[in-house]
Amino acid sequence: ITILESYEKKDLESKINKLKVALKWYQDDKEHAFEAKAIDENIKLLQAQSQLEKDLNLPLIGLSLSETIHKCITSNNSGKANKLKSDFKIPDKRFWWIKLKALVEMRDWDELDKL
C-alpha cells in the first residue's frame, strides 16, 4: 500500500505517474474506494497547481488544496479560487473560512465588507 513514495519524487511528471500506479492498485480493490478517490483528486490537484503556477507565477506544488486557494485569493485571483472550489467540491463553510482569513491577511476590508 505504500506506493505513496511518490512524494519523494522531485519532478511533477514522475510524481503523477507514481500516483497513477497507486491509483490502479486501489481501484482494483473495492474496499479502498475512498483511497482511490483521494489519489485521483491528488493527481487533479497537482495538475491544476502546475497550470496555475504557469499562469500566476507562484510556487504552489506541495501545498494542500486549502493553501492553494488561499494563495489564489491573496494574489488577487479570486476567480481561480472559485474554480478550484467548484472543481473539488469544497463545502461552503470551509471555503468562507479560507477566504475570510486570506482577506484579513491582505487587509482588503472593502472586499470583506462585500461578503
Binding site: 489519489i39 483528486e41 488544496l65
Partner: peptide, 21 residues
Amino acid sequence: FEFFKKEILQTYGFEHLQTLL
C-alpha cells in the same frame, strides 16, 4: 468518517492519506 477524511486531506495535504490509513 468520509467527510472528515476528505476535509483533512484537502486542508492538510493529500500525503496524510497515509496517516489516516
